[in-house]
């Protein structure tokens, strides 16, 4: 069940490609743009989403393993996070709506933990990444979302 082949969909923000073409420096010269600290969290979130190809990875029902397409998204997330060590993120895992209460909390937490561990594997300091689970508290497909906290 857990080892089932995963179908992963990267959530591509609609503007991401266009933004990358219009402002190539966003991807190529990070950290050299000066005074990043004045950027608001919303602007940072938009930049993070655009350069990572998405903030969300999706799982099939009961699935907790990260597939290849999701790994590409997480690699881009990790690259951005390494360039922004001042930014702390929280991985929020979600369970499946049809699941039972406790199992959904555990599945959501496991999805978040898998994402966190993968980001750490890619060199993001563990202190920069926390995790939580929303279980089936918020509807929608089972997923893990990387949220910029500050």
């Amino acid at each position: 069940m857990m080892r089932k082949t995963l179908i992963l969909i990267a959530l591509a923000l609609t503007a991401s490609n266009a933004q990358a073409q219009l402002f190539p420096f966003l991807g190529q010269r990070p950290g050299q743009r000066g005074a990043p600290v004045v950027q608001g969290i919303d602007a940072l979130r938009a930049e993070f989403a655009a350069q990572s190809g998405g903030t969300t990875i999706y799982y099939p029902a009961n699935g907790v393993t990260i597939g290849a397409p999701a790994k590409a998204v997480l690699a881009a997330q990790a690259a951005w996070l390494r360039r922004h060590p001042e930014i702390v993120v929280r991985i929020e895992g979600y369970g499946d709506g049809g699941d039972t209460r406790d199992h959904a909390l555990a599945v959501g937490a496991r999805r978040a933990a898998e994402v966190r561990d993968y980001l750490v594997l890619l060199g993001v300091p563990a202190a920069q990444v926390s995790m939580t689970s929303w279980g089936k508290e918020k509807p929608g497909l089972g997923r893990a979302v990387t949220v910029l906290v500050r």
């Binding site: 907790v64 406790d102 496991r110 933990a113």
Partner: peptide, 9 residues
Amino acid sequence: FSMMVGPNC
């Protein structure tokens, strides 16, 4: 109760 330690519940 249940507790998560890493990915383990």
